[in-house]
């Protein structure tokens, strides 16, 4: 187990290194941030001074090595735009995005699994078909359009929910969160539902497919032949088996929820990392973009690790092995 963790850590280090290099070179290729940042009236001396201040006068490989040197010490550079440490900017925005993604994930699991089970157990019933029909809608409708429609309906027409921002936040263990106050919760509900829609549909379809497959297995028939009550057959024998693929997909999807909450955050003006990323890309704010992507990669690594551990808890046939395979 320890060897497994160490190997994982080493692999993650390599991934982070390659990732940082790619983004560094990529943004260098796109253009010169100074052209965007500095006012058109600035004279040549001022431009040269700014370039020198950002270290952009050095050759690319020197810039990268300096960056790495600093990064190892935990310094990811200052934002070109804000002048504050890039990592601090991201960490400041992280809780908002994490909260949004977590609530969306909880919605996806708590709605997706029961609905999927229902549709899987009663595939021919009207309710089963209706669930599948709606899940196709959830799958196909673009997130931004659904977001706009939600705002139209609940903010503009009905006036029930606010259309932008986080609302009042409450400190929880030193982290600002929205869901603890009524005002914050109202702000959170719509963007979370918008972000969750696709994932709910995904979980419904996965659960339904898994249920239908499991129902044909001998062990389910044997469980029924033992005279078990149908609740036990469904919630223990079927559910425990289908949770394995569901956990995998949910784990991967949680990473993408965080990384790609951009659209939802833009529509609902949610002050999270996604919005910061879009702004930074527009301004070629390299330190922030690189730091953002490194953060996301690190999150993916952690999530995958958690999924692997959950796996071994759910499926007794899988043990985290210490040997490379």
């Amino acid at each position: 187990m320890l060897v497994f963790l160490l190997r994982r850590l080493l692999q993650s280090g390599v991934v982070l290194l390659v990732m940082s290099l790619l983004v560094f070179v990529g943004i260098y290729a796109i253009g010169n941030p100074v052209d965007i940042l500095i006012s058109p009236e600035a004279d040549q001396a001022e431009i040269a001074r700014t370039i020198a201040a950002f270290g952009l006068d050095q050759p690319l490989w020197t810039q990268y090595l300096i960056y790495l040197q600093q990064a190892v010490r935990g310094n990811f550079g200052n934002s070109f735009v804000h002048g504050t440490p890039a990592l601090a900017l991201i960490v400041q925005r992280l809780p908002a995005t994490l909260e949004l993604a977590c609530v969306a994930l909880i919605l996806a699991v708590s709605l997706g699994i029961p609905l999927g089970l229902w549709a899987g157990l009663r595939p021919a019933s009207k309710s089963g078909r209706a669930i599948m029909g709606l899940s196709i809608l959830g799958f196909s409708l673009p997130t931004f359009w659904v977001g706009l429609m939600l705002i139209m309906l609940f903010s503009v027409q009905l006036g029930w929910l606010p259309s932008n921002g986080r609302g009042a936040t409450t400190e929880l263990l030193g982290v600002p969160v929205s869901f603890l106050s009524w005002d914050g919760f109202k702000h959170l509900l719509m963007p979370a539902a918008n972000l969750a829609l696709f994932k709910i549909s995904l979980v419904i379809r996965l659960t339904r497919a898994g249920t239908q497959e499991a129902l044909l297995q001998d062990y389910v028939r044997f469980a029924r032949a033992k005279g078990l009550r149908s609740a036990r057959v469904v919630f223990v024998h079927v559910l425990k088996n289908i949770l394995i693929p569901i956990v995998t997909v949910i784990g991967l999807e949680f990473g993408s929820l965080i990384a790609f909450a951009v659209v939802t955050e833009s529509i609902f003006a949610w002050p999270g990392m996604g919005k910061l990323l879009i702004e930074s890309i527009n301004l070629l704010d390299r330190p922030v973009v690189v730091a953002y992507l490194l953060t996301v990669v690190a999150l993916f690594v952690v999530i995958n690790l958690v999924v692997d551990i959950l796996y071994s808890l759910l499926d007794p046939r899988i043990r985290l092995s210490d040997q490379a395979d």
Partner: peptide, 25 residues
């Protein structure tokens, strides 16, 4: 019927590799 199944009337299946639930002790 459930109360009789597995109680007064039981069944053994063909393929023992498939009959037991793989994730339950």
């Amino acid at each position: 019927l459930r109360a009789i199944r597995g109680n007064r009337l039981a069944m053994i299946f063909q393929d023992p590799m498939m009959t037991l639930n793989p994730v339950l002790r």
